[in-house]
Design a protein around this nucleic acid. Sequence first.
DNA 1: CATAAAATGATTGACGTATTGCATTTTACT
DNA 2: AGTAAAATGCAATACGTCAATCATTTTATG
Lengths: 353, 353
Amino acid sequence: MSGPTLSDVANAAGVSYATADRVLNNRGNVAQKSIDKVRDAVARLGYVRNVAAANLSRKRVYRLAFLIPTGSNAFFNRVRKHILEAANHLSAESVTVEIVDVSAFSVGALQDSIGQLTGHDYDGVAIVGLQSGLLEQPLADLRARGVEIIGLVSDLPVEYRSAYIGIDNIVAGRTAARLTGMSHAGRIGAIQTFAGALDAGDHADRLQGFRDVIAADFPDLRVLDPILTKDDPVVMYEAACSALQSGTSVTALYNVGAGNVGLIKAIKETAATRPFCVTHELVAHSKQALIDNHIDLVIDQRPDIEVNRAFALLRALIDQREMPPMPDLMPTIFVRDNLPADTFNDAMEDQTI
Amino acid sequence: MSGPTLSDVANAAGVSYATADRVLNNRGNVAQKSIDKVRDAVARLGYVRNVAAANLSRKRVYRLAFLIPTGSNAFFNRVRKHILEAANHLSAESVTVEIVDVSAFSVGALQDSIGQLTGHDYDGVAIVGLQSGLLEQPLADLRARGVEIIGLVSDLPVEYRSAYIGIDNIVAGRTAARLTGMSHAGRIGAIQTFAGALDAGDHADRLQGFRDVIAADFPDLRVLDPILTKDDPVVMYEAACSALQSGTSVTALYNVGAGNVGLIKAIKETAATRPFCVTHELVAHSKQALIDNHIDLVIDQRPDIEVNRAFALLRALIDQREMPPMPDLMPTIFVRDNLPADTFNDAMEDQTI
DNA sequence: CATAAAATGATTGACGTATTGCATTTTACT
DNA sequence: AGTAAAATGCAATACGTCAATCATTTTATG
């Protein structure tokens, strides 16, 4: 029932256990023909290493680290929460997790933080990354130490990480556009967009996806150039106020970035009927805004799934195993009716304005 | 780093390893004061059993079974596919899975199938259930044998299972209604609904959720009584044809049930502009219909997440451990833009019409 | 107090793998 | 052929738990 053991493989291959072990764990000093015999036997018997026994034997400890931007960003607080929950559970499987705070979206800070990881002897790290050549050297150094590296939420330079876990932000923008378009039912409209900054890849991607779909499938809608908010709720508030007051022409608001607290405040203060509103990331205040009918849609990237996948992937990479089947990841649409029962806790509370 | 062992606990409690073992595994013949000492030490040291070592020692095998309705229903084929993928991966962790086919939605057949599980010495079973008193006896018998039971997708009588994994179908209906309402942008409309049958709990639930939201928030829309299709694509086809031909009054179609192949076929044959269309469950043909712009939305229950949760939950129940953190489960909205890259395979192909 | 019963302790061999030291055999090279 | 180097085999210990045996101590009972 439970598969063949390494002894079985050794027997089938006609070599000793020690040799089979040398092959499987690349200890060297093995003749090519022995390697072949063992590999062949492994394939024939369908041997798979009993990871539990292996880890027990070598007192394996998985040392993982997550590099997460600091700050009061509610989304990343949610990410943190999921990491901590998982870490708490996985401690029973000898997985240790450290969350390393990084100054938000500063290439220099990220570069430093990655550099400092090198001394800590981690087995794997997940990094909320940036696209910058400055990161390449520290990442290469890390990797040279045998540390598995994945990008999380925001990707790293492609050649310097093993995988990326996050949504496709172009898809996210397209999704927002599809529903915004639908909500107009063929009527003419103008959509005011907001972004933190356009040099950040994800905001630009979302905007592009949004524009693409509107241009292709909703010719009666006009996408207004984004107002830049630096993801600051105060700036966002003022931008939203002016958009809301600018007569009747604006039929929808779409914020690709953060700072939604400001947007929501502005909407709350709008007595008249408001335009159709779409934001990103389900957090305490955006959830509440949905419930209160202050916004219509939230496009979420399911950090719970992302974190889940990150742990599974890191462990698979470290053990050089196959990735277990995991839920697909795609931008997820929330309206006020399909919200998760899970009430987000205090850690998710955002800055107020 | 890696926590205390049972030896540590025994030492801390001032008893022998054997006694500590007797307490932890309820072997009896232990004085109450010893039990207390050990329990206390466990709590003090934060001891958690090393499941890997335990399973290794006792050659633990998790024998699981899934009871899934047969038939050419594309959704359950997708469920099967996810179960098989997970089973394939989990075989490396000595989990064996059997999928038991049950004649679709027949209480008698389900009753029989559950009865037959009793002889197989399973550790846990997940059952696509029904609400029927007839199931109570066989479920009770199963449980008496120490088999963990959970409801999957469709619940069992509440007292006879440990948990239910599936979406809230009222929520699913509400979600469909919210978006259907949005798509009208305040215009007057009439929504033709379709259902397999109304005695089946989930269809009725979806319809009720749908009606509730339309009534509450979209007073200009009228929900037409459902046409019953028995989930048969042929019947569905004819029902859809008549709805599509009945003049201009129908502005949206909502099918809470299966048989969407028929609906899509009818829509394809409609040369003129079609009403807003919402269906349930993302499968090969509904995905294609989204891509082809034949329907607008699919409300999906994420069987990948459900199956994932089912495995995790069954194992947690069997080991009497805590459930690991897993992604939340809620009705998920698909438009043509946020479809999973994962191309569903042949097994998902539905009957043609 | 004698005796049986109950409780406890001590010990051992699995489970499948990792890891190491040492002995032995095979290969390669002069 | 002789020798060094490379390859292989053998044996033992460890990881944390389970499960069982047997010996010994403690407790309860008449």
